[in-house]
């Protein structure tokens, strides 16, 4: 069996999320990677993809239409390549979630999004009800189209391979959508929902002033900042910081909970994080029951130490 994996590149390098998609697809058989982009960026990205070990080949499709990964030409490209593949795979990122269902519909296939485990070539595990239930599904489609929940798969290595690069033609498509502009998040910090690392504070932060102690740590980690409901209710930070049942549901690679006791309402919003760190002076705090790493201590000492220890 052979899988085609769509890779995302940024500034000429392949994203880690795409390498997780490769790691997932490796369980399905041979892998061809697909790299798209404008003619002036594609070479660097293709070369970076070729260094990932385990790829049969890297396909490249260069076109100005791919500069912003618009769904219409991208889905058409995938459909044109599909006859050679049993599985079509991408990471569950904005691009994969946008284009793959469209391609699947054109192939008359029911897409399986957010795959967290591959049982066999036709059986997949994915979360439903915001992660409150996990379903195992068997697909009867001749071809499978999947997006991969990347936190469930350790990324394939970035280096060590030397796959051949082959260019493919982009099929013609109607010119009905056009990129106008883009804007990056203003704060310089990533958004909570998509951040890879989140530093979060609770009642233990004591005040709006106290909460600021998290800033340097978040800056150093390139992390988003979150908060528990108590911190929001106490006016330490605005409403949109809130993580939890009634706030945002997040699942970063690393969640650092500072002065958060870990009420179930908060846990409901972050329990799917890959690694949880808890810093709390109360060693009985429920947050320690879910934390992979815990430090019992005064966060006003520990947080600055942590920032320093990161170098």
């Amino acid at each position: 069996m052979t899988a085609l994996v769509l890779l995302d590149a940024e500034g000429g390098s392949i994203l880690q999320t795409s390498r997780s998609a490769i790691a997932a697809a490796a369980r399905l058989g041979e892998i061809d990677a697909l790299v798209i982009g404008s003619p002036d960026t594609i070479e660097a990205a293709a070369a970076d993809a070729a260094r990932i070990p385990g790829l049969r080949k890297v396909l490249t499709a260069a076109s100005d239409a791919f500069a912003h990964s618009l769904a219409e030409p991208l889905a058409a490209l995938i459909v044109s390549l599909a006859p050679s593949y049993d599985h079509i795979v991408a990471a569950s990122t904005a691009i994969g979630k946008n284009a793959l269902p469209r391609a699947a519909a054109l192939l008359d296939v029911q897409i399986i999004p957010d795959v967290m485990e591959i049982v066999d070539a036709e059986t997949f595990v994915r979360p439903i009800f915001a992660g409150n239930a996990i379903v195992t599904l068997r697909s009867s489609d001749a071809k499978k189209v999947l997006t991969i929940r990347t936190t469930n798969f350790d990324p394939a290595p970035a280096e060590g391979g030397s796959a051949p690069i082959e260019s493919v033609a982009a099929p013609a498509h109607a010119d009905t959508s056009r990129f106008v502009s883009e804007a990056h998040s203003e704060s310089g910090r990533p958004q909570l929902e998509t951040a890879r690392i989140i530093v979060s504070g609770g009642r233990g932060m004591q005040s709006a002033e106290g909460f600021k102690i998290l800033d340097p740590l978040a800056d150093k980690l390139g992390a988003a900042i979150g908060a528990s409901r108590v911190a929001v209710d106490s006016g330490f930070v605005p409403n949109d910081y809130q993580v939890g049942q009634t706030g945002k549901i997040v699942a970063p690679d690393l969640y650092i909970a500072c002065g958060i006791s870990g009420a179930i309402q908060h846990l409901a919003g972050m329990k799917d994080s890959k690694v949880i760190v808890a810093i709390n002076k109360d060693e009985d705090a429920p947050i320690f029951q879910v934390a992979d790493y815990g430090i019992v201590g005064d966060l006003f000492t520990v947080v600055p130490e942590l920032e320093k220890a990161l170098g």
Binding site: Q245, A263, I264, Q265, A268, P286
Partner: peptide, 8 residues
Amino acid sequence: FDKLSSVF
């Protein structure tokens, strides 16, 4: 159980 997991 504790109160908050009950309220949940």
